[in-house]
């Protein structure tokens, strides 16, 4: 688990990007419901490291982040792409201890 930032650094329904020791990038989100999620930051459709900059919301009640490049939705809890279920992004385990967000490997 790598500590990435304080929970208070996150804005509800918005993400931040963090760099893990192995050089990979995660997108960390705080939802307005108060849950924290971490997904791979690389958008599989554009190849750009931008998922952290997508809009967070829900589709049919399922919490999602929408890629800012070509607008596919990814489920926050599973990483599955709702617009193309054959693809998706890795989900990283997340814990919040003493107000600090820690992210592990998928």
């Amino acid at each position: 688990m790598t500590p990435v930032c304080e929970l208070s650094a996150l804005q509800p329904d918005r993400g931040v990007a963090a760099l893990l020791p192995d050089g990979s990038q995660v997108a960390v989100f705080l939802t307005s419901a108060g849950t924290v999620h971490a997904l791979g930051n690389i958008d599989p459709f554009s190849g750009a490291a931008v998922l952290s900059r997508g809009i967070v919301g829900d589709r049919g009640g399922v919490p999602v982040v929408v890629s800012p490049v070509y607008k596919q939705a990814f489920e926050l809890t599973t990483g599955k792409c709702l617009d193309d279920p054959s693809t998706g992004v890795p989900v990283h385990p997340v814990v919040v201890t003493d107000g600090v967000i820690q992210v592990g490997s998928p």
Binding site: Q11, P12, D13, R14, S46, G47, A48, A49, V50, R53, G54, I55, V56, P68, V69
Partner: peptide
């Protein structure tokens, strides 16, 4: 701020490489 598309969020247009 949380409502804005990435373009409005960063007051710039996103490009294909991010």
């Amino acid at each position: 701020a949380a409502l804005q598309d990435t373009n409005d969020h960063f007051l710039a247009n996103i490009q294909r490489n991010g």
